[in-house]
Amino acid sequence: MSKEKKVLTKPKVAFFDFACCEGCQLQVANLGEKLLDLLGLIDVVEFREVMSEKWDKDYDIAIIEGSITDHHAEERIKKIRARSKILIAYGSCATLGGVNGMKNSFELEEIRKYVYGDKYHYFDSMTTKAVDQVVKVDYYVHGCPVYQPELVEVLKCALRGIPYSVPDKPVCAECKLNENCCLYDKGVVCLGPWTRAGCNSWCPNNGNFCYGCRGLVKNPAKNAAKDIIARYKLDEKLMKNKFDMYNKAKEVSDESKK
């Protein structure tokens, strides 16, 4: 335990963004006092949203936001990985493919034409990938946007060199402890029962349903979905669409593996 403490130089940390809304970087910038404490522990050497400096040496920790959606991005993430001791994917776009993965519901050529018109071939594009579908990821911070307390927990683990395990239980587990009125009692489709916990049921705490932005638990209960749809007289298609909002990129890769 004591050995790491003797390191005098602070770890060099860089933030990078790929296809995303940069909302997760905003979550970092909004950490407030916690951010000041963090800055006492690390040297931020690149962070496009708040500074213009670049770093030409290796990174101790690279923190990646956004999904990989074109060939240039694919090359760039590989280069970052090669220069980083630890790589953290944060935000749904990076960890799952996120909303960018909705593109994967369509034929690539068609959707390119639809978005860019007949000059579409000037705009490089490919099937949306999560970061771990291109390079090895050491830590995950799921969420759209990331949940600040979890981000801080993961950073603490990364700085101490110990693993962080994303809870493999549904959001309900946390939601129930927060004594939220079950969304299904309100007649609303909620993805909490299949989505990984770790966000302290952030959305239901604020009256919203779970969008599934953290991805599915390892062994989601598929059969039970039918019972829920029947019990609350829900629209099966609506439920499926809600799943696809964040989880499409992962689904494609899982199928191609089979």
Partner: peptide
């Protein structure tokens, strides 16, 4: 078991 979501609601409450 077929119905169960493994959400832990039954034990938490």
């Amino acid at each position: 078991g077929e119905k169960c979501l493994s959400c832990g609601n039954c034990t938490n409450v």
